[in-house]
Nucleic acid binder design. Sequence first.
DNA 1: GCGCCGATTGGCT
DNA 2: GCCAATCGGCGCC
Length: 204
Amino acid sequence: MGMKGRTQVASQRILLPVSFFRRPADVVARELIGALVVSSVRGTRTAGRIVEAEAYLGHRDPASHGYRNRRHAQNEGLYGPAGNWYVYLSYGVHWCANLVAGRTPNEGAVLLRAVEPLEGLPAMRRRRGGVADRLLAAGPGRLSQALGITRSLDQWPMHEAVVQVYRGDPLAPPVATSRIGITRAVDWPLRFVEGGTRWASRPR
DNA sequence: GCGCCGATTGGCT
DNA sequence: GCCAATCGGCGCC
């Protein structure tokens, strides 16, 4: 394969199919590490590699918004099909973006916690108020702000949405740890971080 | 109706 | 390390 062929292969972007998400949330979370998130919110293109994601196990996970199938207006997205976005407002302040996983309603979801900024850095810096680049998208609220994600993305099928996720591989194997910022099921190893990344968030 | 809490973050002591 | 911001859901009268 010549130089041109290589470039074409490298730039080929394969949208993750719905079947990718029709698996347990912990599997989806692990395999999302290295995938590419591309946002075209309001015509501005920003993109990054997923370096941190957390699985939530739906109705059986005490830390999930859908624990015990408690259902209300804001968590309706958890009952939608795999591959849909589920976006919720955290602490009344920050948007947090998830992708629905599994084969049955409220089986699970994956919270995107950090991306390595790759494209559209000026837009990300503007949206994030000029913070240090390392903090552009290191944390679920920061990630959403950097990519322009708000409630308007909630419940959209990812493959039709203004924010899409493409195939990609991690630079180093994902490492599993406890989830961050929760008070229940704190020891479940459902957070996945790309080994050695400098772009992930950290517990306080 | 009221108070508390949360899958967060930024600012200040 | 501590706390406010700011909203929606919940438990509790």
